[in-house]
């Protein structure tokens, strides 16, 4: 009646190839979604602090709308809701070329962009107002003030919470299996289907996610040290 472990299911048969495929898909969808999330997050996070109300309102709408609806719903939205709006010819092509991957990527990117936005906004708002004034006083336009001074400072301040969000994004990429994206969690389930060894398969998935998360945290830690503002961030140890 007790469970019999058979760890060999993870390296016998096609398991290894499936895990690798799942890992690559997870990395691809997460990396693209991360770029999108970062771009949207920086843009909307910055817009939430500009001295022009309609832009602030638009950015606030984006953030509240996207982060307050569950990611699963956004997966369905991008996969089922968006294609009918596309021209029929393109739609057919898309369905043959990874529609689920792109839908999942947009769902993840746009959802996490809204969450990233709050991180960026809090970074910007922690910069003293006089820093803005000094930048404006040189004759920079608002766009330049943000691009050259404020956003670069904010980004250096928010590496720790942004790391956190990035890890969430990676883990949330598994929600894409609901729209048939064959990512890592999907593949661990696949192994389970073939071998009926649930615990081994889930453990393999868990260990890979854990390794990825530690890797990302490590890389972000290096980025943080490399770009730290001299004198502004007091670091323990390192």
């Amino acid at each position: 009646m007790s469970y019999e472990f058979r760890w060999s299911v993870l390296w016998s048969g096609q398991s290894g190839a499936w895990l690798l495929q799942g890992l690559l898909t997870t990395l691809a969808i997460s990396a693209l979604a991360w770029v999108l999330a970062a771009a949207l997050g920086i843009l909307s996070g910055a817009l939430r602090t500009v001295p022009w109300r309609p832009l602030r309102a638009a950015a606030a709408f984006y953030v509240e709308f996207f982060r307050n609806v569950p990611l699963l719903v956004w997966m369905f939205f991008w996969y089922f809701g968006v294609p009918p709006l596309l021209p029929a010819a393109f739609r057919g092509w898309l369905f043959d070329h990874g529609a689920e991957f792109w839908a999942g990527m947009f769902a993840l990117g746009v959802y996490h962009g809204a969450r990233m936005s709050e991180v960026i906004r809090s970074g910007i708002q922690s910069i003293p107002r006089t820093q803005f004034e000094a930048a404006y006083a040189m004759g920079l336009t608002t766009a330049q003030v943000y691009r050259l001074v404020i956003v670069p400072i904010a980004l250096r301040l928010i590496v720790p919470p942004a790391t956190n969000e990035s890890l969430n994004l990676l883990k949330n990429s598994s929600v894409a299996l609901t729209i048939s994206v064959a990512e890592l969690t999907f593949q661990t389930r696949q192994i389970e289907t073939y071998t009926a060894k649930a615990i081994e398969a889930l453990t393999a998935g868990t260990v890979i996610y854990l390794a990825l998360c530690l890797l990302i945290a490590g890389v972000m830690g290096r980025v943080e040290r490399r770009f730290a503002i001299p004198g502004l961030i007091v670091r323990g140890g390192a």
Partner: peptide
Amino acid sequence: MKRLLTAALALALAGWAA
């Protein structure tokens, strides 16, 4: 999906512990 991971860990632990 964090839930799934947690469940997996819980299961793994249950498997070992029982």
